[in-house]
Amino acid sequence: MSRQIVLDTETTGLSAQNGDRIIEIGCVELLHRKLTGRNLHFYINPERDSHEDALRVHGISNEFLRDKPKFAAIADELVAYLHDAELIIHNAPFDIGFLNKEMELLGRPPITTLVGGVTDTLVMAKEMFPGKRNSLDALCDRLEVDNSGRTLHGALLDAELLADVYINMTRGQNTLVMDLDSNDQAGGGDEVQQIDLRGFDLPVPRANEVELAAHEALLADLDKSTKGKTLWRRHEPQLAA
């Protein structure tokens, strides 16, 4: 899918089913895997106070949110922005659960019925890095994404960081010439340039006499330590042929 929205939310607590609400939504748009700068960001009046544990995570005070719009006031703009896009979310069930609950309270269909799909980067990370920490901070460190400005959680900042993490995690799915400059797109087309490597005469370096002698000495040592011929030597006649 060519249009993707990296999304993050901050909430009053951990349970949408028990009455917790969204207080912040941050969205970052990718078009053909390129950041467009057409982002979307809302602070939302949740009509309730945040739990103390949540306040320690996001640092957004109840007083700050008092004069912010309620979710009903921003729903149309949010739905129009997300329509038919693929959502990229870290720990997607959490954010999707809150978004769907907000839509339910308005008598509207779930967000998941309005978008083109949802990709959970936490699931991706667990498959790519099994047994390792896969929080957003851990992935930023592992993939060399600068998160030095992240002292507290913030929906837009976290979405921006996740966009960089996602691009780095999926870079291998594209050709080596994926990242072209704007000059390459001067014609206005969206197609990625393909390079036929068959047109290149790639040099094949050969070992010199010193390197061959060192190789033979290493094999002789292996023969001695294993009290027999190494597998490499057994296949030498076939290789020479």
Rank of each mutant, 00 (worst) to 15 (best):
Q4H: 11
Q4K: 15
V6M: 05
V6D: 04
D8R: 08
T12V: 03
S15Q: 14
A16P: 13
V28F: 05
H51E: 15
H51G: 09
E52K: 02
G59T: 13
S61C: 04
N62H: 06
N62D: 15
F64N: 02
F64H: 13
L65T: 12
K68G: 06
P69E: 05
A75Y: 14
D76M: 06
A80H: 12
D84I: 00
A85D: 05
I88K: 00
H90I: 08
N91Y: 11
A92M: 05
F94A: 10
D95N: 04
G97R: 12
G97P: 07
L99H: 05
K101F: 07
T113K: 06
V115D: 00
G117F: 06
G117P: 02
V118L: 06
D120G: 02
T121L: 03
T121A: 05
L122D: 11
K126V: 11
L136S: 09
L136T: 15
A138K: 01
L139H: 07
D141Q: 12
L143H: 09
N147C: 00
H153W: 12
D158I: 02
L162K: 06
D164M: 00
V165D: 11
N168M: 00
N168A: 15
N168E: 13
N168I: 01
M169E: 02
T170V: 01
R171C: 12
V177I: 08
D179V: 13
S182T: 03
N183A: 15
G189A: 13
D190H: 07
N208E: 10
V210Q: 14
L212D: 10
E216Y: 04
A217V: 12
H235E: 10
L239N: 04
L239K: 03
A240W: 10
A240M: 13
